[in-house]
């Protein structure tokens, strides 16, 4: 148990500088970008000089770099995400609206990619260099090489337009479908195409990691020993080969989920899913510092939490890890 507590304490402490660096990075990025939030806004409306000046004053963009930096640090210290300029609402409420969509897409993509990736990986790694292995590995490479926007468009054309099985876009139907079960089914219906588009590439990653681990495990001493003891091939495969090979896959899963938390601008845009990726994009084009800092910080926090969960899982599965005194 002390192992777990130590891990938690260590991660909690190291999260603070990470979050600070990330927040400052986002702030500086927009400080050094040409044009500010008022420029971005006026690009849509136009307006005279007095209009621009008044907008800047009301949005608190008037001061010098030092003043803006001070304001930014104060809001960081007080953990106040502030007001979004683009949405004219508190940043926290905007993020609270978008985050669930991204989490949903992240979860469905991970389940889909890990499920298929690990399953196929097991098939491929069962008999390395067999015909099945080469076939599966090549197919996976093709999936990895397909850009997700292209695959997404192809899926839309094929499965939403020509053969209208799925909705073209959106995260739920515009007009509510009755009941909790109906809403859930509706949600899943909408998630299918974006999940396929986003997850296809990740299948290959899971597959290759598991396969590589299995190839290595087949040659290890414990497999030879197990065979020598006369264990059945099925049980050798299950306990001696797949199990040790799953550990690196878990690490891959942690990393992939991390990249998914930031959202996918491309897939979210194509399927009109209001998620974190699109939000970050809108924050940058709108020069909305408060919003960008909020998005980046919440994504970072989530990545840290997920990494922590993965580490805990690893520690639980593999007693050798993190056990300095054990």
């Amino acid at each position: 148990m002390t192992r777990v507590l130590r891990l938690l304490a260590l991660r909690g402490l190291s999260a603070i500088p990470t979050l600070l660096i990330v927040a400052c990075g986002a702030f500086l990025l927009l400080e050094f970008a040409a044009g500010d939030a008022v420029d971005a806004y006026l690009a849509q409306t136009g307006g005279d000089a007095g209009f621009a000046a008044e907008l800047r004053r009301s949005l608190g963009l008037g001061g010098t770099f030092a003043e803006r930096l001070a304001g930014f640090l104060v809001s960081l210290a007080t953990i106040d995400l502030g007001q979004s300029v683009v949405f004219a609402r508190p940043v926290a409420s905007v993020i609270a609206e978008r985050l669930p969509n991204t989490l949903l897409l992240m979860a469905s993509t991970t389940l889909f990619a890990a499920g298929f990736g690990l399953g196929l990986g097991m098939l491929a790694g069962r008999h390395p260099n067999s015909f099945a292995d080469h076939g599966i590995s090549t197919a996976a490479l093709v999936l990895l090489a397909i850009p997700n926007f292209w695959l997404g468009l192809l899926l839309v054309v094929g499965l939403a337009v020509s053969w209208p099985l799925f909705p073209v876009a959106g995260i739920r139907s515009l007009i509510g479908t009755g009941g909790l079960v109906g809403a859930l089914l509706d949600l899943l219906h909408h998630l299918v195409l974006p999940t396929l588009a986003l997850g296809a590439g990740y299948i290959a990653l899971y597959l290759r990691t598991l396969r590589a681990g299995m190839v290595e495990a087949w040659q290890s001493d414990h497999v030879r020993a197990a065979r020598a003891r006369g264990l059945s091939e099925a049980s050798v495969l299950r306990r001696g080969v797949v199990r040790p090979a799953l550990l690196p896959s878990l690490v891959v899963a942690g990393q992939n989920i991390g990249t998914l938390v930031g959202g996918s601008v491309v897939v979210e845009t194509l399927f009109a899913i209001p998620g974190m990726g699109r939000l970050a994009f809108e924050a940058v084009t709108g020069r909305d510092t408060a919003l960008l800092v909020g998005v980046v910080m919440s994504a970072t926090l989530l990545v840290l939490v997920i990494n922590l969960v993965v580490d805990l899982a690893m520690a639980w599965l593999d007693p050798r890890l993190g056990a300095v005194d054990g």
């Binding site: 468009l153 839309v156 054309v157 939403a160 337009v161 909705p167 073209v168 876009a169 959106g170 009109a272």
Partner: peptide, 20 residues
């Protein structure tokens, strides 16, 4: 009248074709 937010122009064309 419902205004669907569709940020991708390709998706707009597809949604028209699918009569969504």
């Amino acid at each position: 009248i419902i205004y669907r937010v569709l940020p991708d122009r390709g998706a707009i064309a597809a949604a028209l074709e699918a009569n969504q």
